[in-house]
Nucleic acid binder design. Structure first.
Lengths: 214, 214
DNA sequence: AAGTATTGTGACGTTTTTGTTACAAACTTG
DNA sequence: CAAGTTTGTAACAAAAACGTCACAATACTT
């Protein structure tokens, strides 16, 4: 029923009948969006999501959950899983279509603008930072880390948050790895590097005014 | 009804009764999220959204539409307006809360919970206190201790309470350790330090008016 | 397929934080 | 005002958190 509704709306649809094959297909085809029922034969929808979010090639795919049980929604929406949206059964095909379209549209319009805080500008298309005309090439993780800090303004991000947002909610990466990337960032950014301030026992933040030590 | 539901969930809510005042408040306060009814006295919700999306300072704010008319949803979701999500009347407070939380989480703008008593403000994300524009960096335990005192208002906390709340009920930490931390706090806070008053034989409290000795 | 760049990990040194102790100062009580 | 409590202060040592480096593993180029 869902497949038909979406195809009629002009979307390309691939279906899977159980969790394992869903994962296989997602890996192979890397769709723009995944609709995931929580009640599946064998593997639960939660597990499928967890696996996909832990793999580099599929982690970015938005997942919309479909469920009949209202009490599961909290877990879906919570930080635990990277759910993008949800639909509760029974739902109209129209409702489902609207939500998928909304998610797809959000994703399209997302990766556009440069990110700037006045001093420093990040360019996602070139994966680099600009400071006073100077261009600094960054690696992918360095860039994303810096972008996360900048999006958060003056406030600090704790290591757990950063960990989840950089490597996904189920990654095996050590917390201290963040420190290393921070260090690499500081080195590359030169003088602007000490804008990255460490909040002891918590995480890191970007200060507008570089801290003057001693 | 909506306002109450969200406030109960710990969100800060500002309300506006018509389109024009909504725009004014959005411009002035730049909220993290806007809930917008389509049926408003005077200006329509569409127009409010258009105005906000056309102005630099408010364009980035996610707008969640609230509507009773299903046939309006297409326009909301369509490219025409930059809607982030929608809720159709009648809806449960729970549904609304879930969707707002989801949007906020996507935007990574978790509303910051500052603790203030008018004179001093505590910022958990930076682990610091602000007094008259001056920022004072605190260590983790210092911060928690000060936060505990502030939460308790004018009343005094006894050492046993503080001990449990800082180190847990099974800790091996000496009671006198609190005194040391109090001392460190006083030193760091400077003049505001003597707002921390010792209640002999009991514990400590935060006075609004600094005590003038001698 | 070899070479380069990127990334995660473990080890090590440094700095910061934290709890304890000892002693001085302040307060209480009789 | 003197003895006993309670609190303030400073110094010290242990522990925790952080920065840095070198190296191995992986991914990416050419």
């Amino acid at each position: 029923m869902i497949g038909t509704a979406l195809r009629n709306a002009g979307l390309g649809v691939i279906e899977a009948m159980d969790g394992a094959s869903a994962i296989d297909k997602a890996r192979a085809l890397v769709p723009d969006l995944i609709l995931l029922d929580l009640m599946l034969p064998g593997m639960s929808g939660f597990d499928v999501c967890r696996v996909l979010k832990s793999e580099k090639n599929t982690a970015h795919i938005p997942v919309v959950f479909v469920t009949a049980r209202i009490d599961e929604i909290d877990r879906v929406v919570g930080l635990e899983l990277g759910a993008e949206d949800y639909v509760i059964k029974p739902f109209s095909p129209r409702e489902l279509l609207l939500r998928t379209q909304m998610v797809l549209r959000r994703r399209q319009s997302a990766p556009e603008a440069l990110l700037s805080d006045g001093v420093m500008t990040l360019d996602p298309t070139r994966c680099c930072a600009e400071i006073k005309g100077k261009t600094i090439k960054l690696t992918a993780t360095e860039f994303r880390l810096l972008a996360l800090l900048m999006q958060n303004g003056e406030r600090a991000k704790n290591r757990e948050q950063l960990l989840v947002e950089l490597w996904g909610s189920v990654s095996e990466v050590d917390v201290r790895t963040i420190d290393v990337h921070i260090q690499r960032l500081r080195k590359k950014l030169g003088r602007a590097g000490n804008r990255i301030e460490c909040v002891r026992g918590y995480g890191y933040r970007l200060t507008t005014e570089p801290i003057l030590h001693k």
